[in-house]
């Protein structure tokens, strides 16, 4: 009868697959609070030892760039090819650099 109660908030789940790697987004889930979010993340996303560390973040706290910002955000980098090491020709005689 209480179908009207509000849903549990949405959490995004990030997992570090192995030592030395960064956490990676794996999916999301609903949970009442951070403790149950962590428990649910363990059950939903690491049933086969997929990780050594879990982060859960309530989805509303994530700020995302908009698809329409793609141009203004990333375009300026395209003309700055000198940011890549291959821009510079170093003679072979110099050795490894």
């Amino acid at each position: 009868m209480t179908g009207k109660a509000p849903e549990w908030p949405l959490w995004e789940v990030f997992i570090r697959g192995q030592h030395g790697m960064a956490h990676r987004h794996v999916g999301s889930l609903h949970a009442a609070d951070e403790k149950t979010a962590m428990l649910n993340a363990r059950d939903v996303y690491t049933r086969r030892s997929e990780g050594v560390s879990i982060w859960v973040v309530e989805a509303r706290h994530i700020v995302a760039s908009a698809p329409s910002d793609k141009g203004p955000l990333y375009e300026p980098a395209n003309s700055k090819t000198y940011r890549h090491p291959t821009f510079f020709d170093i003679p072979d005689d110099v050795g490894a650099m």
Binding site: T2, A5, P6, W8, A32, D33, T36
Partner: peptide, 8 residues
């Protein structure tokens, strides 16, 4: 569902 929401 309600109990966990209330606790949170």
């Amino acid at each position: 569902r309600e109990g966990l929401s209330a606790r949170a």
